[in-house]
Design a binder for these strands. Structure first.
Lengths: 222, 222
DNA sequence: TGAGTTATTATTCACCTGTATAATTGATGG
DNA sequence: CCATCAATTATACAGGTGAATAATAACTCA
């Protein structure tokens, strides 16, 4: 005996807004409850629409997942690059330090991003599209890191730069994962210090003390 | 119109055997197809039993998941410790190198283990038991690493040892993940070399050339 | 203002999930 | 050889899943 059909009112939004809202909803749900929590119905509810709309903007739920994963991964590289661009080219070590530091503060080192990364991680093992996104973003990030390393004032050696970029990338990844998974096991700023010390040692350089401050240009939070 | 009930024949196995078989089946399925592939029915089929038997040996599917995760994580630490114990205590750097190297060859650096780790990773974010297992195994591994570092012939400094253990652990983790996720992007032995070089640089030591051979005591595979 | 488009909702479907419970059969000991 | 016990199978259930389709109402533009 259904009620005489009082239909939920709605507003038409631009395609871009709706796509973004759905992606954001999917990311938030994955971060909070893992991939199994990001059901079509839950995503729609979080985005304030009904489930059917997802398949109006995405051919399948899988396609929405791909879009969300790509956005998360690219956001991280983009944020680190943006931080590096803050420092003048004349200071290669400073640029590298800024790139590294960006990974250990918001908006990169947040429960949301670590959670989404962890939730989607394993999908790269079977889904070819996810694998391609993983590979592309990993290599993109690493190449950028290698460029910063190659710019350091020392004799050129591409093979060495490659190995060191891989090592620095791995160190950053490992610290980011554990710092994000078990934050209560590390003091504030400790992870950043360990990252910078480790990278400096592996590259045989020294970062200025100013690089060790979590929030370089803006105010330090109380 | 069901056939007149020709029941599947079976053999009674010991409790231990059945539990191990179910855990192994769950691990294999997670490694191959992610957690969503490890359904009660799929696990039972892989283990050669019917679904109901799972709940005869485990109170719930969740409990089976916990058992499998714990086994995977502990196996890694155990294998690295076993490798370290191969080297006499009089050679601290050699022990450390053996510990590190064990992470970059079978049975630790296998698609199965990396896959299972990736599949279960995110569960630690919501499930308290999984979180506890993750924390316990992570800290156990890191403590063992710190002991090996503290044994190096140099002035004692526990705070420094702690930071260096965190850094070395992160480097190992990051290389293990990327080496396992994108093996086609690395040459054979390259990951091990990068790990040992990085750790040596961060600790200010030098490993003997012999440490760089992937398979120390046994034969090298063709 | 009114007709047309389509973004959005509502409903339905076939399938899969973990769990609970009942029925059976293999092993064991007398 | 039979009785007992529990390991194992079989069946059923309630709920959730992504997807497909039909109905509707919010805009757009003439």
């Amino acid at each position: 005996m259904p009620e005489p059909a009082i239909r939920r009112p709605y507003r038409r939004e631009g395609e871009e807004k709706r796509r973004d809202a759905l992606i954001a909803a999917a990311m938030a749900l994955v971060a909070e409850g893992g991939p199994e929590a990001a059901t079509v119905r839950a995503i729609a509810a979080r985005a304030g629409v009904t489930p059917g709309l997802i398949r109006h903007y995405f051919q399948s739920k899988e396609e929405l997942t791909h879009a969300a994963y790509r956005q998360v991964m690219e956001a991280m590289t983009h944020e680190a690059m943006r931080a590096a661009a803050t420092i003048p080219e004349a200071d290669p070590a400073g640029r590298l330090a800024a790139f590294v530091a960006a990974n250990f503060r918001p908006p990169v080192m947040t429960t949301l991003l670590v959670g989404v990364w962890a939730g989607y991680m394993h999908l790269g093992r079977n889904d070819p599209v996810m694998h391609a996104i993983h590979e592309a973003t990993y290599l993109g990030y690493r190449d950028r890191l290698q460029e910063l390393i190659a710019a350091l004032p020392r004799p050129a050696d591409p093979a060495r730069d490659r190995r060191e970029a891989i090592a620095c990338n791995a160190l950053i990844d490992g610290l980011w994962i554990e710092g994000g998974s078990l934050p209560e096991n590390f003091d504030s700023g400790e992870v950043l210090r360990i990252a910078l010390d480790g990278i400096a040692a592996m590259l045989g350089i020294r970062f200025p003390d100013s690089a060790y401050h979590p929030f370089p240009e803006s105010e330090t939070p109380a």
